[in-house]
Amino acid sequence: MNLPSPESASLPATPHINCGSPGEVSSLEVHDLTVAYQKKPVLWGIDLAVPPGRLVGIVGPNGAGKSTLIKAAMGMLPLSSGWVKVFGQPVRKSLRRIGYVPQRESVDWDFPVSVMDVVLMGRYGQLGLLRRPRKRDREIARECLDKVKMLPYANRQISNLSGGQQQRVFLARALAQESDLYFMDEPFAGVDAATETAIITLLHELRDRGKTLLVVHHDLPTARDYFDTLLLLNMRVVAFGDTDKVFTHDLLQKTYGGRLTILSEVAHVVGQRGGSAKVP
């Protein structure tokens, strides 16, 4: 494949998804997005259109801007250029349709709240300013806790949870947001195998219900199995498309550059399963 040099602004040769039928509104549309930390660009000219009902894995090396991309997409960072639209609307107007699972380490797990309190926070966005959670919100929170099998822990303080349980609580909170577009920052980091399976089942279920999910993921070998769509990111969009079209040696090498250890690992995976294997 003849790949363009990293310096070119557009990447004509990279596979991109056809954005469904012409009239369909993308769940997430990002145009010419550039984000800089102290004048050093972290993301550069990102163009992206994610159609509804996709489970997208965001993959790339450390410092590729994966977390930055989802934070910028939610309007949490100042943009140097470009714009973001969620369901055809500016992101500020669509926050209620966005669910978010931050990195587990981003909060203090000794905070004096119960598991139920945390999941209820998922309802806060729908409630808006000043209104308090009602009985209905508690019911929703309980249902969501049940979905991740954490209902027996509802009244525990969060510091008594294991890593996998903490991640389930965060997922339950995101479910309680009842959103159409989900951003998840490394939900598989540091969880046990049972939780990993539970999470991926849940993600597939959400996708099958027509939700769009963008999941930051740093484990390449599993990325291929978990996601139907991949976004290969390294400051720019290296490739975005169906997993079996994008998960190729050339594109991964372009994403990860000279990081040989990861590459040989990936080569192994690719060689093992062939180029067109796809998870149902």
């Binding site: 949490m76 926050l95 978010y100 931050p102 905070f111 309190d117 945390v118 806060y124």
Partner: peptide, 19 residues
């Protein structure tokens, strides 16, 4: 109370929820 609680516990999530 709700706003103080959510921003104290998880500022990123609070902002993503529109607070």
């Amino acid at each position: 109370y709700k706003e103080f609680l959510v921003t104290s516990f998880d500022e990123g999530f609070a902002r993503a929820s529109g607070f």
